[in-house]
Nucleic acid binder design. Sequence first.
DNA 1: TGTACATCAGTGAACGCGCGTTCACTGATGTAC
DNA 2: TGTACATCAGTGAACGCGCGTTCACTGATGTAC
Lengths: 193, 193
Amino acid sequence: MYTMSTSKSYHHGDLRPALIQAALELLREGGTEALSLRAVTRRAGVSAMAPYRHFPEKEALLASVAAHGFNRLRATLSTADSNAADAREALAAQGVAYVRFACEDPALFRLMFGAAQPRNYPELGAAGDAAYGVLAGRVASFCREAERADVALTCWSVVHGLASLLVDGQLRQDASPVMLAERVTRLVLRSVR
Amino acid sequence: MYTMSTSKSYHHGDLRPALIQAALELLREGGTEALSLRAVTRRAGVSAMAPYRHFPEKEALLASVAAHGFNRLRATLSTADSNAADAREALAAQGVAYVRFACEDPALFRLMFGAAQPRNYPELGAAGDAAYGVLAGRVASFCREAERADVALTCWSVVHGLASLLVDGQLRQDASPVMLAERVTRLVLRSVR
DNA sequence: TGTACATCAGTGAACGCGCGTTCACTGATGTAC
DNA sequence: TGTACATCAGTGAACGCGCGTTCACTGATGTAC
């Protein structure tokens, strides 16, 4: 599956990323519940003990998976931001991208932000900060300093809230996540100067 | 513990609410992880099988606990709403109360809204709808009809997002949850007409 | 009012399950000479 | 270039754990006559 060479060898050769990849697949297919260490090893075609060469414990693998998620989120936000016409449009585009990201991979979103979120892994903290930086940077680009913190927090809250409600099945709306995100983002932007 | 009579009798006498109460305590003390059916029975001083006289399965107990949470939330929102001076203040007060509710009992909030949320229990759905109705009713009281849906969704999203970020430890702010909620709510209200 | 008996609400032992992790191991790899 | 050997990266069996739920039971309650 994830072997680099075609020959079936005793050594996998690239197990660490393969484990992260397997974990991402399991998250997509079965949610957080399906993400056991043993399931990951089964998916990667490796013994139950193999991960311990690369991660000291299950939590550390989860932290790497979450960090991977934050890196993807940062890239998504950056792309949305730079494709926009002006600063306020860029902020709106980031909001929509945030919600779309969550809905495309709900279990990953939950792992990144939810109760099961791994703690005290510097790699993870840094990846999260980098993603947040994309939003904060955009806010700083047009918002006067005294209001920046509140505006950034409000923007983050509204898209995080909408994403969470969607991901957790609280909304019975017919509208697509992206349409809802656009309407909500638009409304909040009215109050951002 | 939860017996109605002082005498230790074979029959508990009031086990159903006692189980819900025990579950709420466990949630407060140890979070969702600590909420096993067996832990609930231990806390209630009853055998592991006793709950099955009152709930067909674990999920059904969780649904009752979550419904209890929604009833409390509805009451909290109603009180905040009716103590306010005018319609917009009432909406702001509901938002602050929502965030405070989440922060006071994070694990209950997660059970009510998160991935572990029980599905397909009518009692639970009704309790959730009733809580939402307090917000929707307030929005309807001063907002023109065309915008009501978007305004209600935006308000819910922003307080739900802030509550989630706080509860999941994403914010390193010094400010108290209530202060943050006031600032964010105030900012969003600017755009609500 | 007393009693027979159905029903209700609990007990207690046992089950199978998948989990994360331990232990001792072994095959493959790479480096020093 | 060949070889000895340390190190690396995997295996496979086994562990103890707490869980939700099953089964067969028993003590308490309430109602019909």
